[in-house]
């Protein structure tokens, strides 16, 4: 799967931001949500964004998704501008809330993007079955969202983003509302999913351990104006059991992230 995912995408960085700026014009004056953001994400990387509330993590992800228009600088996704990439269905987006449609079953929710993108009936069936298995929800195809726990709903929303097999996955605090035990399990599952599919991940989180555990690259951001204050390349191996969190390397990176966050707060 990794081979096909890499084979069909164009060469170059998956996401490339150069001097990206975004200013919201609100009633209380302009809000500088992103200031001079420079970032390159390579194929197959797992990049986490961490930073205090309001530092522009969601805004950056929405820019990549073409849901927000930057006011300055350049941004490319798969070599296209974000709007064109959006129309080319270059990415799957997982929002902070599961946001499943209550009138559709779990299977029906996962079919939604497939219906819109015009997959064949047979292909739809196959993909729904496969993605449900991928997030460990086999047997729940005909349940309605309210019959599932919060964690299961969040997994279903990840399955929905995976179903059309985009190479890039954008996730905005997908596990933010879940308790730590469920979160650990889902983190493990997400890592193994990433290892199996070779997708490129952009992942927003508030949790330092989560960021360190998951990422090959951690982007530390600071607020007012929202900017990148540190980019940390993780030396952790690709194979990561949960107890890697007690290792020396892990603790060192977590420390550096914490320092980066503190420095960002003081500078602001």
């Amino acid at each position: 799967m990794q081979a096909t995912a890499q084979g069909r995408a164009p060469a170059g960085s998956v996401v490339e931001a150069k001097a990206l700026n975004l200013t919201f014009h609100t009633n209380d004056g302009p809000v500088h949500a992103l200031k001079d953001v420079n970032l390159a994400v390579e194929r197959g990387e797992f990049v986490s964004f961490i930073g205090p509330s309001g530092c522009g993590k969601t805004t950056f992800l929405r820019c990549v998704a073409g849901l927000e228009t930057p006011t300055g600088g350049s941004l490319s996704v798969n070599g296209l501008d974000p709007d064109a990439a959006r129309r080319a269905r270059a990415y799957g987006y997982v929002f902070q809330a599961a946001g499943l449609y209550p009138w559709r079953t779990i299977g029906g929710n996962i079919r939604l993007p497939l219906e819109i993108m015009g997959f064949s009936e047979e292909e739809k069936k196959r993909r729904v079955r496969d993605t449900l298995a991928l997030v460990d929800l086999d047997g729940f195809e005909n349940k309605y969202p309210w019959q599932l726990s919060g964690g299961m709903q969040q997994r279903a929303s990840i399955a929905r983003a995976l179903s059309f097999d985009a190479d890039l996955l954008l996730m905005d605090e997908p596990f933010g509302a879940l308790d730590e035990i469920v979160r650990d399990r889902l983190n493990e599952e997400l890592l193994s999913l990433w290892a199996r599919t070779g997708k490129t991940m952009l992942f927003v989180t508030h949790s330092i351990p989560e960021a360190v555990y998951l990422s090959t690259k951690i982007v530390v951001m600071s607020p007012r104006p929202g900017r990148i204050s540190d980019v940390i390349d993780s030396p952790l191996p690709k194979e990561r059991p949960l107890d890697i969190r007690d290792s020396r390397d892990f603790i060192d990176i977590a420390h550096r992230v914490r320092e980066g966050l503190r420095a960002g707060m003081e500078a602001a």
Binding site: L67, F95, L112
Partner: peptide
């Protein structure tokens, strides 16, 4: 959010109407 979700799929206005 529900509307943005459909935009990420590149859904048309008609699809947004019928499906959401």
């Amino acid at each position: 959010m529900q509307l943005d979700l459909l935009r990420t799929y590149g859904a048309t206005g008609g699809q947004t109407f019928w499906k959401l």
